[in-house]
Amino acid sequence: MVFKVIEGGRGQAALADEWPEAGHGPSPDDVRWEAARRLNESGYHLSRVREFATGAPMPAALRYLSLQIDFAAEALSRLDPIPVDFRSDAYWPTSS
Score class of each variant (00 low, 15 high):
2 V>C: 08
4 K>E: 08
9 G>S: 05
9 G>V: 03
11 G>R: 08
12 Q>K: 10
13 A>S: 11
14 A>C: 05
15 L>G: 13
16 A>F: 07
17 D>H: 14
17 D>F: 14
18 E>S: 06
20 P>K: 06
20 P>Y: 11
21 E>K: 15
21 E>T: 15
22 A>S: 15
22 A>V: 15
24 H>W: 09
25 G>Q: 00
26 P>L: 05
26 P>V: 06
26 P>S: 11
27 S>G: 01
27 S>N: 05
28 P>Q: 12
28 P>L: 07
29 D>S: 04
29 D>P: 00
29 D>I: 05
31 V>Q: 00
31 V>N: 00
31 V>D: 00
31 V>I: 04
32 R>D: 04
32 R>H: 04
32 R>G: 05
32 R>M: 04
33 W>E: 07
33 W>F: 09
33 W>I: 04
34 E>W: 01
35 A>E: 03
35 A>G: 01
36 A>I: 04
37 R>V: 01
38 R>I: 12
38 R>V: 06
38 R>Q: 13
38 R>C: 06
38 R>H: 11
39 L>C: 02
39 L>A: 10
40 N>S: 13
40 N>D: 09
40 N>T: 13
41 E>Y: 06
42 S>T: 07
42 S>M: 03
43 G>E: 01
43 G>H: 06
43 G>Q: 05
44 Y>S: 05
44 Y>A: 05
45 H>P: 02
45 H>R: 15
47 S>N: 08
47 S>L: 13
48 R>T: 09
48 R>S: 12
48 R>N: 09
49 V>A: 11
49 V>L: 10
51 E>R: 10
53 A>R: 13
54 T>R: 01
54 T>E: 07
56 A>V: 11
57 P>S: 12
58 M>C: 03
58 M>A: 09
59 P>Y: 03
60 A>N: 09
61 A>Y: 11
62 L>Q: 06
62 L>W: 06
62 L>D: 02
63 R>H: 10
63 R>M: 12
64 Y>V: 11
64 Y>K: 15
64 Y>M: 12
64 Y>Q: 14
66 S>R: 14
66 S>L: 09
67 L>R: 13
69 I>C: 03
69 I>Y: 01
69 I>N: 00
70 D>L: 07
71 F>R: 15
71 F>N: 14
71 F>T: 15
71 F>A: 14
73 A>Y: 01
74 E>N: 05
74 E>M: 06
74 E>C: 02
74 E>P: 00
74 E>V: 08
76 L>G: 00
76 L>F: 00
77 S>D: 02
78 R>T: 07
79 L>R: 10
79 L>V: 07
79 L>G: 03
79 L>Y: 05
80 D>R: 13
80 D>L: 10
81 P>Y: 01
83 P>V: 05
83 P>S: 07
86 F>I: 04
86 F>D: 02
87 R>V: 08
88 S>G: 03
90 A>Y: 12
90 A>G: 08
91 Y>A: 02
92 W>I: 07
92 W>G: 03
93 P>L: 12
94 T>N: 08
95 S>N: 09
96 S>I: 14
96 S>H: 13
96 S>D: 12
96 S>F: 15
96 S>R: 15
